[in-house]
Design a protein around this nucleic acid. Structure first.
Lengths: 225, 225
DNA sequence: TTCGTCATGTAATGGGTTACATGATTAC
DNA sequence: GTAATCATGTAACCCATTACATGACGAA
C-alpha cells in the first residue's frame, strides 16, 4: 500500500542511510541540508515514517530501557530512533538507479542532486542531462510565447519574463559546467556514506569544480528557529 | 463562503480586468504571461470561475444568440465569456492594495509583480522591499546552517547549497535594481489596462530599467568567486 | 516556575491534479 | 474523414498543511 509520495520517502531513506535519527532531527535536516527547496511539516513526516516502517524499510528503536517503564506512569515519551533496514537500503539503491523522467522536475532534481555522492557517474550524467533538456524545453516555450505577445505586455510583465528566462539560462549554464566536470572526472562509484567519515576526505568525489566560497559563512550566531 | 485560494482568484481577476475571456484562453494566459511559475489545470480553474461568479465578481456570457437556440438540439456548447463586474473590479483593487506578508512568498510575488502596472508606486515599493527582506532572511538562514554543517557535507550537497544561495543572492540584486529605479522614477498611479491600448505606449510606466533585449546575459558581472 | 525547545502524534481541511466524459471547430 | 486543438466540466484522489493535543527537559 501507500503510494507514499516519492520525494519525501526518497529523502528520508537517503538521510537515514548516513546515520539513524529520530523524526525531529530528520525534519531539521530536510529543511537545511536538502531543504533549500521544501519544508515538510510533522503532519507529513511522521505518517510517512510509520509507512516506511510498515514496509519493512525502517525499524523503530525506542531509546528507553526495553519495556522497563510501564508506559502509563510518567510514560517517558521516548525518542524513536529510525534505522534503515537492509531492505530499505536496497530499496533506496533501486530508487537511486531508477532516474525516471520525474527526476528532472524542479524539486525532485534538487533531492536527487543532494544524493549524487551515492550514485555512479552514469546515473549522475543521465539526471544532469535530463534536467538540462527539460530546462531547455521550458526555455524554448518561454521564448516563443514571449515572441508572440511581446507587444501586448506591459513593462513589468516583460521584465518578469526576462528575469525568469535569465534564471533558467543561468541554471542551464550551471548544468553545463557540472556535466563538463563529470565528463572530465574519473568514474567514481557509489560510496556508502556510513563509512565515509573513516575514509580520507581528500579523495575526488567525482569531479566537481571545487569552487567553494560563493558567500561568506560567518561562524558567529545561531538561529532562532 | 469559499476561501478560494487567493493566488488563482487574484490572477484571474487581474487578467479579466484587461479584457473579458473564456476559461480556456484564461488558462493559457495563466501559464504563459504569468505562468513562468505555476500551471493550473482545468480542474482547478473552472470551479474557481464558478465561485467567482457566485460571489458576484464575474458574469458569464454565453456566446450564442440570447436563448434562440433550444440548447437541447445540437446543444452548441457555447463558449462562456467571463467579464469582470464593477464589484469584481473593486475587489481586485482591494487585493492589489492589501499587500500582506503572504505577498512576498515565492509564487505570490510573481503574480503580484505581473500586475504592478496597475498599482501605485508605494504599493510596489512595499511588495519589493517585503520580498527582499524575506529573501535576506532566507539567505541568513542558509548561511548559518551551511556554516554549522560545512564539514559534514559532501561536495555535491555543498555545491547544491552554494548554487541555491547564489540564486537567491541574484534575486536580491535584481530587487535592488528594481527598488532603485522605482525610487528614481516619477510616481505613476494605477492605470486601467482596459484603456491602455488607446493611450500612448511611450509613457514611462514607473521607472523600469528598460533593459529589453530578451535574454542577453549581461556581460558585466559574474560569480563573486 | 515558567518559558523555550525538544519530541511525537492526529483529525480536519485545503488546494490541487488526474482521469474521465463530452462535444465543437479547424486544418489537412 | 480524421486528427488536433479548442472548449467545458466532474469526481476521485493525493499530498501536504494547520491546528491541535500531549509531554519531557533545560535554562532563566
Amino acid at each position: 500500500m501507500s503510494r507514499r509520495s516519492g520525494i519525501l520517502e526518497f529523502a528520508v531513506l537517503g538521510l537515514l542511510r548516513e546515520s539513524p535519527m529520530h523524526g525531529y532531527e530528520l525534519r531539521k535536516r530536510l529543511n537545511t541540508s536538502l531543504g533549500v527547496f521544501r519544508a515538510f511539516s510533522y503532519g507529513t513526516l511522521y505518517p510517512c515514517l510509520k509507512a516506511l516502517v510498515a514496509n519493512g524499510w525502517l525499524t523503530e528503536e525506542t531509546g528507553s530501557e526495553p519495556e522497563t517503564a510501564p508506559a502509563s506512569l510518567t510514560g517517558r515519551r521516548a525518542k524513536i530512533v529510525y534505522r534503515l533496514t537492509p531492505e530499505g537500503k536496497s530499496h533506496f539503491e533501486e530508487l537511486l538507479a531508477h532516474s525516471g523522467p520525474d527526476a528532472w522536475e524542479d524539486e525532485h532534481f534538487g533531492v536527487r542532486f543532494a544524493f549524487f555522492g551515492q550514485t555512479s557517474r552514469d546515473v549522475r550524467m543521465r539526471v544532469l542531462e535530463g534536467r538540462r533538456s527539460r530546462l531547455e524545453e521550458r526555455l524554448e516555450k518561454m521564448r516563443t510565447s514571449l515572441a508572440r505577445s511581446r507587444e501586448r505586455l506591459d513593462d513589468y510583465t516583460l521584465e518578469l519574463q526576462r528575469h525568469g528566462m535569465e534564471s533558467v539560462e543561468r541554471e542551464v549554464r550551471w548544468l553545463n559546467e557540472l556535466i563538463e566536470s563529470e565528463r572530465a572526472g574519473r568514474d567514481q562509484r557509489a560510496v556508502d556514506p556510513a563509512e565515509r567519515n573513516q575514509k580520507d576526505t581528500s579523495g575526488d568525489t567525482g569531479g566537481l569544480p571545487r569552487r567553494r566560497g560563493g558567500s561568506r559563512p560567518d561562524s558567529s550566531d545561531d538561529t532562532t528557529t
